Structure formats: C-alpha cells, structure tokens
Amino acid sequence: MTEPAFVLGVDSGGSGLRAVLGVPAGPRGSTPVRSKEPVRTGPGGIDARHMTEQLTPMIRQLLDEAGDGRIVAAAVGAAGMATLGEELRAELPSALAESFGVRRVALAADAVTAYAGALGQRPGVVVAAGTGLIAMGTDLTAWRRADGWGHLLGDCGSGAWIGRAGLEAAMRAFDGRRGGSAALRARAEDMFGEPLSDLPRQVYPRADRPAVLASFAPEVGRCAADGDPV
C-alpha cells in the first residue's frame, strides 16, 4: 500500500506561525497547529533558524496526528518575504529536505499566498489585513502592491498601526498634551500596568513588537464604540 503524500502549508506573520498538511487534489487537510511567537528578523532578514526551530516540532506533530505519510512539497507564505527573505531562501529548503525529505519548496510573501488562496488564478485584488497590512493585485500579466512596509514604515490600517496610534494617544494623555485620550490611557494602564512611563521598557526590547502593538487594537475599538473621539 502506498503511503499518503502530503503538501505542507505554512503561514508566517506578525502574530505567529501556522502549519497544516493537505492532500493533493484531496479533501480538506489536517487541523492547523500554531505558534504564537512570530519569527524573528535579524541582519540577514527573516531568521531561517528561528523558523526552523519552531516549525520542526509542529511538522512532527502534524505527521504524528496523520499516522502515516510523507511530505512531498511545501508552500511557505512569510510576511516580509519579498524584502527580507534572502536567508530564508538560502536555508529553509535544505532544512526541510534534511529533516523531512521535502524536495519541492515554494516560498512567497504572505500576500501572494493569501491572493492564491482567495482568488486562485483569476485577476483581482486582495487586502491582507492583520497585524500588518498589504494590498496585492494582478491582471495576470503584472503585479501591483500597496503598503506592506512594516510597522515602522507603513502597514497603515493594520492592527499594529491602530494599536500604536492608541498607545500614542494614551501617552499624550499621560503627558498632558493635546490629542490625548483619558479613556485610552486607562485601558493602557489596565493592560500594561502603571505607571505608563514603564511602557517603553515593555515594548522596545521585544522581538514581537508588532504583535504587542496590535494587541492594543481591540481596546482602541472598544473606546471608539464607547464614543471616545480620539
């Protein structure tokens, strides 16, 4: 009896890592497994070793749950792949081949894999909005993108962008400056503790800063729903 052949799907974004096994031309795949720790970036871009360290036990769990089979191909969608993917391109395929015998690996930006999942081989536009934000469109002859420049340079309208704006308003209220929000200050103090002057120490050293900023976005939404003008 021939053992089942699987395709591994991986999504790497600002809020963590997800992986799932699918059967080519078959029914829906396995239940995804998740890691809430985002893959780090370093001088070489996306940290391939950090992704491999997280992904390896996730793949083993998926294979154990499947009971039998082998991975014949992998498709990886990673946030920042277009501009920060050099190290990942150089190291991840060989790591997957060595550990799991994967011989075919497709690496793409997460916006491209989101487009493929939503529209397939049709012209159109997809807005991928989460911790970050990017819009991607194609007429199948050329691609256009807008934003996706990360939490320091763009991602306008993303969770990190909204959360950062809310925390900035909270700090303005803490300082007594114009444009502050007492309501957002109170929410920030509940979430991050008092005094707010300690907030930079909690945020700046973190490798997952976009996720930390995005975690405050729901509080901004609640304040908006309660009528806070900021």
Rank of each mutant, 00 (worst) to 15 (best):
H151E: 13
H151W: 15
G101N: 02
A170K: 04
A188Y: 04
M1P: 15
A90S: 10
T131Y: 05
Q121P: 14
L62Q: 06
T83R: 10
L17E: 01
L17R: 07
G14S: 14
S35L: 00
P218T: 10
A111P: 13
L167V: 02
G117N: 03
V127A: 11
E53T: 13
W149F: 09
G120K: 10
A207L: 05
V126P: 12
G22F: 02
D139H: 12
V23E: 13
L55S: 03
L92S: 04
D147S: 09
L84I: 02
W149I: 00
A214M: 11
D226Y: 08
Q61L: 15
A135R: 07
L140H: 08
A75F: 10
I134C: 05
C223A: 15
D155M: 14
M1W: 09
M51D: 07
F192G: 03
R103W: 01
E87K: 02
V39L: 09
R122P: 06
V39T: 10
V212Q: 01
A73H: 11
D155R: 09
D11T: 07
V7W: 08
L92N: 08
R172V: 00
P218W: 07
P27I: 08
G13E: 00
V20S: 05
A73Q: 13
V102M: 09
D64R: 08
L21A: 06
G16Y: 04
P123G: 09
W143K: 03
G45Q: 05
L21H: 04
G29D: 00
T83A: 02
P205V: 01
R178E: 15
L184M: 12
A165T: 11
A224D: 04
D175H: 04
R172P: 01
